[in-house]
Design a binder for these strands. Structure first.
Lengths: 353, 353
DNA sequence: ATGAAAGCGCTAACAC
DNA sequence: GTGTTAGCGCTTTCAT
């Protein structure tokens, strides 16, 4: 007695909604068994070269393509990686920072090159652990998370649960998960050091140090100040978030309250842009009154007003690096965190000395 | 005799690589059959409320999650949509235009809201038809393609083959596939008309009219000129591609060769930015000597130099619209092309009159 | 209300 | 070299 799953309406012969071709069809038409078709299509040496040819030909001419769901189920294999971009639930912010989007593009390339598919999704930045769902449900073999946000702890838990995971971000003390990122300390240092070389002495820092990457950049910034014999002034630190909406307000307030600075290290190019706007709004010029550095070197950084001096992140290499780290883990390699070099791109917002 | 698929190394008990929990495990622990677990987890009324509770509890506490591959295979269902971004194979350009990336973000949101997963990939812009692979292989129930590029014909073929497909782009004559896009003719008109209102009379058009969207925008541009009693001057048309690299060169050449224009309608914000750069390189000011309009109103358009007057595209709504169109098709509705309104955002590159 | 068993489309171990 | 068959993890009909 035939059991019918979800009885497909059999009366739609008119609709042209033809049932998807499967191996059994090819087999029938080729006059061989399904196994032979399977073997032929997989290029098995076991099947007669002539038969193999014929079956392959037939399959191609009929535009057959395999049902991956079934194949994966049988093979217990999967070539899909989940890429997860955290978002701020409160502001319901889009995936929008150009930098994150560039990274996603870079990962897409790297995965494609290696024959993997990419499942893209977003997750509440407060519940990064939900990203493990993709693995747990078998939809993906691992997860690439774009950014650590403030939940270092959740990431550690995920790693402890043996979730194949790679995170774009900075390397923190006692970190259990595998991170890949630019050298944030170096980035912070390069930016601050450059402003110091320009003769600036009161250098502000814009970025939310609750985020590991920002925290590291601040280390670098502080170190550069120390090298120059200067102290960090907490009054010149502004914990601006990456979301443009909130950041705009916070920055305007900061710029009207605080006037005693002549340089700013910003933790993203968008923040740099907003900072410049806020400065102008209170009648201060860039780079004349205040020199500003951005972070990321997004594609448009060269076309802003003024073009941004910014820390260049290795976006193009990032995708490959993240993917390799993940695949390495899956091969059982104990992949440690990886930090990639960054450099300063000099433009007008903080010009060459 | 037990058949072993791809003999999993049985000796890795030490590695902590614990086998994924499945229904049979829950069933055993709950002392019921697999069917009952299945029913319980699907909230079937058939199973005793108390049992259902108990099973659900157990599953949750064990962190069980279902194997979607198997479920889909059995149910012949799939909740994955492929989103495909064409790229230029010759230049091996990244997915990089901020506008495309914003659209992708918008689609991600729309799909998530409706409980669908998103498979993101790129495809050679010359072989858009390869995008059908996702459907053919059963990995996705349909395809959303970002942009028509120059292969209108391939898209029509795909639609003719009954591929569930929605394309972000303009509506062309005799189009068989479903497109969703901004009103390109209107956009072109709004931009040109605004420049005319500014008193500009020699208005250039920058964009490759081989692309349907650009072609439509040029219609609108031409129409606005005609309204004003002006003729279109082919010498003022520049078929600049969207790829920044190539466009930069072409634009520099154009701007040094052609000096007889005082306004430019550009077909993307990035092109507008590049145009402004090229103009400045030959000593012409914006908007003083030449007023420039962009297209898309990308998030950063307000922060460029100068801030861009640009045609705003309905990115936020685009995702929902595209997804609805696709799901509509799958429900058997005959979804026609859909054109969404656009408007001009006035900023400094072509200021208010 | 629950269980047994078939089968979704595919692969591979085992026969021949 | 090819066919037969079991079974990947799940849902559902049918039987109880």
């Amino acid at each position: 007695m035939p059991l019918m799953p979800k009885s497909k309406d059999p009366s739609d012969s008119s609709a042209g909604e033809q049932r998807r071709l499967q191996m059994v069809d090819i087999a029938r038409l080729a006059g061989v068994s399904v196994s032979t078709v399977s073997r032929a299509l997989n290029g098995s040496e076991l099947v007669n070269a002539e038969t193999r040819q014929r079956v392959a030909e037939l399959a191609r001419s009929l535009n057959y393509s395999i049902n991956f769901g079934a194949r994966n189920l049988r093979l217990q294999e999967n070539k899909t990686v989940a890429v997860v971009v955290p978002y701020d639930a409160k502001s319901r912010q889009h995936i929008s920072d150009p930098f994150f989007l560039s990274i996603v593009g870079s990962i897409a390339d790297a995965l494609t090159d290696r024959g993997y598919d990419m499942l893209l999704s977003r997750v509440d930045a407060e519940r990064l652990d939900l990203a493990s769902h993709w693995f747990d449900s078998g939809k993906a073999i691992g997860v690439v998370l774009i950014g650590q946000w403030r939940h270092h702890d959740q990431l550690n838990d995920m790693a402890a649960r043996k979730l194949p995971l790679v995170v774009w971000g900075g390397e923190m003390p006692q970190q259990l998960y595998c991170s890949v990122g630019g050298d944030n300390v170096l980035g912070g240092t390069l930016a601050a050091r450059h402003l110091l070389q320009l003769g600036r002495r009161r250098i502000a820092f814009v970025g939310d140090a609750n985020l590991p990457e920002v925290w590291l950049r601040r280390q670098g910034y502080a170190q550069a100040l120390r090298e120059a014999g200067l102290d960090v002034d907490p009054a010149l630190e502004l914990a601006a978030p990456f979301e443009p909406g909130v950041a705009t307000e916070v920055l305007r307030e900061f710029c009207s309250a605080q006037r005693g600075f002549d340089g700013v290290v910003c933790c993203s190019d968008v923040l740099a842009l907003l900072t410049i706007q806020a400065l102008r709004a209170v009648g201060r010029s860039v780079p004349g009154d205040v020199a500003v550095t951005g972070y990321d070197d997004m594609p448009l950084a060269a076309y802003c007003d003024p073009p941004l001096t910014t820390v260049h992140q290795p976006v193009a290499e990032a995708g490959a690096e993240l993917v390799e780290a993940l695949l390495g883990q899956l091969r059982g390699e104990r992949a440690g965190p990886r930090t990639m070099p960054v450099y300063l791109t000099l433009r007008e917002s903080a010009p060459k000395a």
